[in-house]
Simulated scan of single mutants.
Amino acid sequence: MACNPFVCWACPPQETVTFIESCGKFSKVAYPGCNCIIPCCGQAAAGTLSLRVQQLDVRCESKTKDNVFVNVVVSVQYQVQKENLWDAQYKLTDSRQQISSYIFDVVRATVPKMNLDDVFLEKEQIASDIKEQLTKSMSEYGYLIIHALVNDIEPAHRVKEAMNEINAARRMRIAAIEKAEAEKVAIVKAAEAEAEAKFLQGQGIARQRGALVAGLRESVKDFTSNQADVSSKDVLELMLVTQYFDMLKDVGTSNRASTIFLPHSPAGMTDAASQIRNAFLQGSVGSEKIHAA
């Protein structure tokens, strides 16, 4: 503002207004540009207001329903209404302090009704309540509330660590359950495979023995039909003894053979033939039962 003893000039910058008073009473609003003020008539500049969008950041501490103290950081964007410049200048002494008071009131009335997790989830609802309350309260003072944002919710450091530990423990428990389920499936499938393999192996052994018995039966039948003086028992014992010696040969030529002790007297041979014959007969009966099933 430039002046001389008779005339002064008020030149508010762009998007700023200056209030001119005459003898302490509001006279006019000086808009951006060159405005004449006559000091000798008692005129003087009483203050300025910015018409730009302004932002106020407020940090408010409050307690949640589950007794956790948190700091809620709220940012409010507001602007002076051009049609209510007089109200904005003369009705409030400190507009920023007034807005802060309303923010504190809304936060401390809303957050104590929520648990800590709900405060994070209902952040937009808290911001909406703040904007609604400020719009109702500040409109009569010539201020327009553009946005109200909850930028941050900060619980105590120890509470943050506890929340992270709870989340980590929950995820580890889920991972342990999934790992146990995978191991269970693997064990069950391995047991089923082993049972199926043993079943098929048993079927194979039974069929093998049945085939051997059938072959021996045919061999005995062919031999006795040509030799009338030889009984089928003698033929069977001869064939079993032959297979017994073949078995000894295979054991002796095997690379993994170990020392075994067998009775090798004539009486022992008779007993071995009897045992082999009984084993084949039992195998034949088992094979017939399997085929019948």
Rank of each mutant, 00 (worst) to 15 (best):
C3E: 08
C3G: 03
P5G: 06
C11N: 12
P12H: 04
K28V: 05
V29F: 06
C41A: 13
E61L: 10
T64V: 08
K65G: 05
S75Y: 01
Q77M: 11
Q77S: 13
Q79D: 09
W86L: 15
D87V: 05
T93D: 06
T93S: 10
S95H: 02
Q97R: 10
Q97A: 14
I103D: 01
V106Q: 02
A109D: 13
T110G: 01
D117W: 06
F120M: 07
I145R: 00
I145K: 01
I146H: 05
A148F: 06
A148N: 01
A148M: 02
L149Y: 08
K160H: 07
E165D: 14
R170A: 13
R170K: 15
A175L: 10
I177Q: 13
E178S: 11
A182F: 12
K184R: 15
E192N: 07
E194S: 11
E194C: 05
A197W: 15
K198P: 04
L200G: 01
G204I: 14
R207E: 11
R209Y: 11
G210P: 03
A211Y: 11
L212F: 12
F223E: 02
S225E: 14
N226P: 02
A228S: 12
D229F: 07
V230Q: 05
E237P: 01
V241Y: 03
Q243W: 09
Q243Y: 04
Q243V: 06
D246V: 06
G252H: 15
S258V: 12
S258M: 12
I260M: 15
L262I: 14
P263E: 02
S265G: 13
M269Y: 13
A273E: 00
R277P: 01
A279W: 06
V285N: 06
A293C: 04
